[in-house]
Write a protein that binds this DNA or RNA. Structure first.
Length: 550
RNA sequence: GGGCCGAUAGCUCAGCUGGUAGAGCACCGCCCUUUUAAGGCGGGUGUCGCGGGUUCGAAUCCCGCUCGGCUCACCA
């Protein structure tokens, strides 16, 4: 939303003019605007507070008109509408942490003076005095304002504030009769007007759509939402410390790529005008990171966005954050060790325990995690005997029955389908699914002694795939053959294939040392640790269709 | 993209087989100087998501659309 046209310009509120009468009537009706809605019949609202001029030409509600009018009266009373700064002595959290535990007797002899600022979240007005709470997002504190303390003029001006307004309060700390830490207000400073009513104090903001579209409102009303994003930030900095401490370097590889490789997914297409070429937003950084390992950067990691042009649901957002890391002279067994260290370390350091709830289950992150071969997991989850998986036509037929729209179904793909349908959701406790079929892993080495299997694992927790790692395929000829096989699959109508990247093959021809690589989906990791069932709860601004009225 | 469900006051929600919309909070007026979901008295502030249709009459029934949720497909 652009700046509201009815807002006073900066000069209007400048200090030199602050004692003058506000020179403009507010709000201004644009005379040529025939859509200006009729004035609602409300005798309590002054006529000049009506006829809104919001750029969107959306009619203001009664409460918005009241707020706009109070704001105008504040400015007319000489209040700077946009002050530059306020010197706080404490954050709200500072005060609560330091003094909430003190008794009235401890506070009284030497009252602590404070200047504290926040958003007014509730008001209890009692004639010549009032209590209200202010919040700065991390904590809230009560303020007691008395007419005989601040003076008649200031008290009347305070009454022009609404729930949602931001102000600074100066005064001394005390405890009320009921024992609540409070600030006895000597004076206050207006800092920002909230021109819209806030959601209800008791139920708050529930509407999932509004919570995502106007995340700021969600954050104002639902403090636990901010906790999720603080946790997300802590997860990412923990991971950076982890890798930095092990001699990894953090790198950034292209977001815009001529060939969208490193995974099998549909990319977004964009266009470069000067080069007159289409480019793809990356679906994975993998092939670039391994080029760096070829170049001698033996330990690299990247935490960044990937973009996949696929469906949206509670586990998928078109842009999502991925950690990928590669270490030379390692294999996937080493990556399994590291994965355990990462998950258990995060849990221990950020949650302070090795168990936590997820939905109606308790997830227990204790080393070592269970390790199950892909085929054994299939047998376990599907109820079929292990030998049944040697009967290839039978397995393909079974998979075709489970997912009739997926053609052609190869043996490897059939195993994948059965896994997704029968096994995945049963894997609640952390489980490494080891050695999936090679043909769905075109960038991984074959498992030692098992040519049909990939030297790869996926970590499943709470039915979600949290990590995916393998011993990287380093043989350029083999890699080229795998790419060509993918292209052949594509010609057969399989749209889940990896594109040929001959430049990457050339990099391999210079020699990629044995390398272990892994990807961890940050969004899902945060979902897990914060007990959120939807990816939209851990992404500040998830993709939504735009709305005209927003 | 398919199926199911939803959209009513600023917010959270009621509203039956069709008869011109209600509650709590918020808001407005009055009273109230230690309240805390403050309290008392008075006031409903609405394009019932949008557009058609049926009907004497539609929030309600039918059709189309928009946005969202769940789910299936796709994907991580």
């Amino acid at each position: 939303m652009s700046t509201a046209s009815w807002m006073p310009s900066a000069s209007v509120g400048s200090p030199s003019q602050k004692s003058q009468t506000y020179p403009r009537t507010i709000p201004m009706t644009e005379p040529e605007n025939p859509k200006t809605p009729p004035v609602p019949p409300n005798p309590s609202v002054k006529p000049e507070a009506e006829s809104p001029g919001r750029p969107s030409e959306v009619q203001k509600s009664e409460q918005e008109l009241v707020r706009a009018d109070k704001y105008r009266r504040l400015i007319e009373a000489g209040v700077d509408p946009f002050p530059h700064k306020v010197e706080r002595t404490h954050s709200v959290l500072d005060l609560v942490d330091a003094y909430a535990g003190k008794t009235a007797e401890e506070l009284e002899p030497a009252p602590v003076r404070t200047v504290v600022a926040g958003r007014m979240m509730s008001v209890r007005l009692m004639g010549k005095a009032a209590f209200f709470h202010i919040s700065d997002g991390r904590a809230r504190i009560q303020v007691y304002i008395r007419k005989d303390k601040v003076g008649d003029e200031a008290y009347e001006r305070w009454k022009l504030l609404d729930i949602g307004d931001i102000l600074a309060v100066e005064g001394a700390l005390f405890k009320t009769r009921t024992g609540e830490l409070s600030v006895l207000c000597d004076s206050f400073t207006f800092l920002a007007k909230c021109l819209h009513p806030l959601p209800e104090k008791w139920h708050g903001l529930q509407d999932v759509e509004i919570r995502s579209r106007r995340r700021y409102l969600d954050l104002i009303m639902n403090p636990e939402v901010a906790d999720v994003f603080r946790l997300r930030s802590a997860v990412i900095s923990w991971l950076r410390r982890f890798f930095d401490g092990r001699g990894y370097i953090e790198v950034e590889t292209p977001m815009m790529q001529a060939i969208a490789g490193g995974a099998m997914a549909r990319p977004f297409v964009t266009h470069h005008n000067a080069l007159n070429m289409d480019l793809f937003l990356r679906i994975a950084p993998e092939l670039f990171l391994k080029r760096l390992v070829v170049g001698g950067l033996e330990k690299v990691y990247e935490i960044n966005r990937n973009f996949r042009n696929e469906g949206i649901d509670s586990e998928h957002n078109p842009e999502f954050t991925m950690l990928e890391f590669y270490e030379a002279y390692r294999n996937y067994d080493d990556m399994m060790e590291m994965t355990e260290e990462i998950f258990c370390g995060l849990c221990r350091d950020l949650l302070g325990k090795d168990e936590f709830p997820y939905g109606d289950r308790v997830i227990s992150l204790k080393r070592p995690f269970r390790r199950v071969k892909f085929r054994e997991a299939l047998a376990e989850g599907s109820g079929l005997p292990s030998e049944a998986f040697d009967d290839r036509p039978r397995i393909i037929k079974l998979a075709e029955g489970l997912a009739p729209e997926k053609k052609p179904v190869t043996y490897g793909k059939a195993l994948d389908i059965i896994f997704d349908k029968h096994v995945k959701e049963k894997l609640v406790q952390p489980t490494f699914i080891v050695n999936p079929p090679k043909e769905v892993s075109p960038l991984a080495k074959s498992a030692l002694g098992e040519p049909a299997e990939a030297a790869r694992f996926e970590l499943m927790v709470a039915g979600m795939e949290l990590a995916n790692a393998f011993s990287e395929l380093t043989d350029p000829a083999e890699q080229k053959a795998r790419f060509e096989h993918q292209a052949e699959e594509k010609r057969k109508g399989n749209d889940e294939t990896h594109p040929i990247d001959l430049d990457y093959v050339q990099a391999l021809e210079y020699g990629l040392p044995p390398t272990g690589g892994e990807g961890i989906g940050i969004d899902r990791l945060v979902m897990l640790l914060s007990n959120r069932r939807s990816i939209r709860e851990v992404i500040l601004f998830p993709l939504l269709r735009p709305r005209e009225d927003q």
